[in-house]
Amino acid sequence: MAITLPDSRGLSDDVMQALRVRALHAIESGFSQADVARVLGVAGETVSRWWTAYTTGGLDALPQDRTGRPVGTGRTLSDTQCAHLQQLLDTKSPADLGIAAPVWNRRAVRDLILKEYGLRMPIRTVGEYLRRWGYTAKKPSRHARKQDPDEVREWLEQTYPAIEKLARVERATIFWCDETGVAADAYPGYGYARAGERATIQVPDPHIRINMVSGISNTGEVRFMTYAGTMTAERFIAFLKQLLATVPGAIFVIVDSLSAHTTETVATWVQEHEERVAVFYLPRYSPELNPDEYLNNDLKGNVHDAGLPDTSKTLRSRVQRFMHKLLMLPKHVMSYFLHPKISYCSSD
């Protein structure tokens, strides 16, 4: 494997001075100037200039100036333009700026440069700029288009801090709750196969499915209940009863605005048990703000590791086994709160 040396124009002055001295030492030791230049990754003329200066006036006569084009010169965009583009990438979406793209990819940035400065830049060059600016390609986080940013901001800055403060006063445990479903034929992982061939997997009946409602606290507690069919007010109340039966003291439950959570039946039941339970609702269309969503992702990513189940009974057993394992892993549960979107409610 051939090693590519870094461009010496990007090296610091101290490193360059060390290279000059090593080059002179190598020539004095019998190496040719051409060999020294090749090993150090500099031009032969540069080594020759160093040697001439040294033999004429000693080390003090070594030239300190740089030859060749300085790093950064000849680039299409100025530093000011680069800073402006980065500010747009950090604060705006393509749609905000009239760019037809779902995320900031190289094509979208190319179109942005054309729109802002009238410059037509090759895709590869755009990629070089992004790399130089410190941007890397990542799988985008998702949020609903209907999400209200003002509602989210109010939740993060006012609503949740007030809930957290009240929980401390009342010594209540906050449980973040959500529902999910696991299908027997769903497998999100990858499989190896020969080049040019596809990995295959035998799947069971696509109608085999089990649903679950769960709740987690930022101290690692877990509660869950599996069920068939859809979530209803009665099922949600059954889960709340389970929480009251297994968690001492007051409980604050945070859920989304699913219709089963917001019915008058639920509101009446909660009011009847207000001495022990209160229910709060996340901003609409904001699942990424609920740490229990990350438990759901963990469940779906691991429940079928041993193969796809053939029956609903086996599927339910798999889900319950995974969840019972989580009961013994509070630190793992607490790791769901480390996601950047969830850090606002993590334990101190």
Score class of each variant (00 low, 15 high):
residue 32 S to M: 00
residue 25 H to G: 05
residue 62 L to D: 14
residue 61 A to V: 03
residue 114 L to F: 02
residue 142 R to I: 15
residue 79 D to Y: 08
residue 131 R to C: 12
residue 151 E to F: 11
residue 149 P to N: 12
residue 80 T to I: 14
residue 125 T to G: 11
residue 106 R to N: 04
residue 47 V to I: 13
residue 110 R to T: 13
residue 31 F to C: 07
residue 128 E to H: 14
residue 125 T to D: 03
residue 58 G to L: 13
residue 71 V to C: 03
residue 118 G to C: 01
residue 113 I to M: 15
residue 87 Q to F: 01
residue 102 P to C: 10
residue 48 S to P: 06
residue 136 T to I: 11
residue 86 Q to F: 09
residue 116 E to L: 10
residue 37 A to Y: 01
residue 134 G to Y: 13
residue 128 E to T: 09
residue 29 S to D: 14
residue 119 L to A: 01
residue 58 G to T: 06
residue 70 P to H: 02
residue 35 D to L: 05
residue 48 S to H: 10
residue 87 Q to L: 14
residue 87 Q to S: 15
residue 41 G to M: 03
residue 49 R to S: 14
residue 113 I to S: 02
residue 25 H to Q: 15
residue 144 A to M: 10
residue 130 L to N: 12
residue 138 K to H: 12
residue 29 S to G: 08
residue 122 P to D: 12
residue 103 V to E: 02
residue 91 T to E: 06
residue 26 A to F: 00
residue 101 A to K: 09
residue 58 G to I: 07
residue 50 W to D: 01
residue 47 V to E: 04
residue 84 H to N: 12
residue 111 D to P: 00
residue 91 T to Y: 06
residue 99 I to S: 00
residue 49 R to D: 05
residue 103 V to C: 05
residue 23 A to E: 02
residue 70 P to I: 04
residue 86 Q to W: 04
residue 122 P to I: 13
residue 128 E to K: 11
residue 49 R to G: 09
residue 79 D to A: 13
residue 143 H to W: 15
residue 26 A to N: 04
residue 79 D to P: 10
residue 56 T to D: 07
residue 79 D to N: 09
residue 145 R to P: 02
residue 129 Y to W: 06
residue 35 D to T: 02
residue 60 D to L: 08
residue 41 G to K: 02
residue 114 L to G: 10
residue 107 R to V: 11
residue 143 H to A: 14
residue 116 E to F: 03
residue 73 T to P: 00
residue 128 E to R: 09
residue 84 H to Q: 07
residue 78 S to V: 07
residue 84 H to Y: 02
residue 92 K to I: 05
residue 76 T to E: 10
residue 72 G to P: 00
residue 126 V to Q: 01
residue 151 E to G: 12
residue 89 L to S: 12
residue 57 G to Q: 03
residue 45 E to H: 06
residue 151 E to I: 11
residue 80 T to K: 12
residue 107 R to A: 11
residue 47 V to L: 05
residue 148 D to R: 11
residue 148 D to M: 13
residue 88 L to N: 06
residue 80 T to E: 15
residue 135 Y to E: 10
residue 73 T to A: 11
residue 48 S to M: 11
residue 123 I to H: 00
residue 144 A to C: 13
residue 106 R to L: 08
residue 33 Q to T: 01
residue 116 E to W: 05
residue 96 D to K: 01
residue 86 Q to P: 05
residue 38 R to Q: 11
residue 22 R to S: 14
residue 38 R to C: 05
residue 84 H to I: 08
residue 53 A to R: 00
residue 49 R to C: 04
residue 85 L to T: 08
residue 67 T to I: 06
residue 58 G to Q: 09
residue 129 Y to V: 08
residue 53 A to E: 06
residue 118 G to T: 07
residue 89 L to F: 06
residue 144 A to D: 12
residue 35 D to M: 13
residue 96 D to Y: 10
residue 68 G to R: 00
residue 104 W to T: 00
residue 83 A to H: 09
residue 121 M to V: 15
residue 149 P to L: 09
residue 104 W to L: 00
residue 129 Y to T: 02
residue 69 R to N: 06
residue 64 Q to L: 07
residue 94 P to K: 07
residue 50 W to T: 01
residue 76 T to C: 07
residue 47 V to Y: 00
residue 109 V to W: 05
residue 115 K to N: 12
residue 139 K to F: 08
residue 36 V to M: 04
residue 87 Q to C: 13
residue 138 K to G: 05
residue 53 A to F: 01
